[in-house]
Nucleic acid binder design. Sequence first.
DNA 1: ACAGTTATTGATCATTTGATCAATTAATTC
DNA 2: GAATTAATTGATCAAATGATCAATAACTGT
Lengths: 212, 212
Amino acid sequence: MSTDPSASRRKAPIERAAEIARRSQEIALDEGLSALTLRAVASRVGVTPALVSHYQPSMDALVATTFGAIVAAEISEVAEELAPCETSVAALKTLIDSLLGPERSAVTAVWLDAWSLGRRHAALAVEVGVQMDAWQAFLAELVKTGCARGEFRAIDPDAVAWQLLAIIDGLNAHAVVRYGHAQRLRGLVRTVAEHELGLPPGALGSGDDSEP
Amino acid sequence: MSTDPSASRRKAPIERAAEIARRSQEIALDEGLSALTLRAVASRVGVTPALVSHYQPSMDALVATTFGAIVAAEISEVAEELAPCETSVAALKTLIDSLLGPERSAVTAVWLDAWSLGRRHAALAVEVGVQMDAWQAFLAELVKTGCARGEFRAIDPDAVAWQLLAIIDGLNAHAVVRYGHAQRLRGLVRTVAEHELGLPPGALGSGDDSEP
DNA sequence: ACAGTTATTGATCATTTGATCAATTAATTC
DNA sequence: GAATTAATTGATCAAATGATCAATAACTGT
């Protein structure tokens, strides 16, 4: 047993790269994208700043990929959550509840950072565009499936997906900045969704909006 | 003519303070809130960084007040634009057209910066809250007036104001990040407004959405 | 004209940032 | 077991940031 892995401080490049990516996402979610600094990553990984530089061509690239990874994970999580839903209506209901829940504020804050920082960082701006498209495509797929099943009625599913995304982003932004108000606005998304998808009023309404 | 004002490089404190405030707003609108740095202000005003420090207790304070001034000016502009409108429907129509026009992207970018930076800067966070309240109050006033005139029907004007604000913010954010899409989403705000205010469909619709 | 006030400057500091490079040391290969 | 590879470090740079302070110079009141 001379090969004690805990004694060895040296890691395989793939592991180290994965570790850097994982820690970077932690930092971004904990303290925001602007806190994702060379030294912050190095400190949390437990290595020297130079090593982070060794694995990353530049911090701009790391920030961009970290943002992309966080959003991609978000989409995957939500997709997994929606998988068991038997109807598109149930899936949409679940999606709205999930997206507007308070537990997503960290991801929303990262979105806000990305929107702001993206105006000066080209790589991040590209990634923001990619991930917004990814979200829109995900929502559009949900709408199209619902239409194919005869549950929804939408002339332009892509446009509806953009509308829903914009409303969700707006509400989430408000929720991050001012927690109190936005929680009560959750019903707005349902109302718009019902209207745009030809659903009867209340089709997406669940009782857990009320608070004692 | 010994008192040539252009030869004198010294200004009255009030003038200088106003100049710093004005130039700061320029910088924020041109390059974003994060570009509002001590040296950037000094450079644009044409003085030493130390002088800016002399007039401002800290950069955090200057950033917060600059943001507040920009948004306050935004509200004033819009209010002025709405003043000549004879009906609340016309006012709402004008407001939507104005708020979602492409010429507001600079202000929206400042909003995004403020949302992001506000999470780390206490003074800015306070100002963001104040200005969001101010916008909501402005919208609520419009809704209430419309209700009093019998043009609108809203059970909870304050809630409707928050909803409209959230949607506008979401669409504006999308517009800043990806110009193409959001312009076509303008109709969404009208649809929601019509629905929430008991207006007949198309009451807020204007023809300038179509593009050749 | 003079003295006092203060707007303004120049210099300087301490931090924080991203980045680079030679040296070192652990792992792999032969 | 020796030699090669490369992961890792320590040191260091240049740039940008907010901030402070003594010195200077322009205005003001008398």
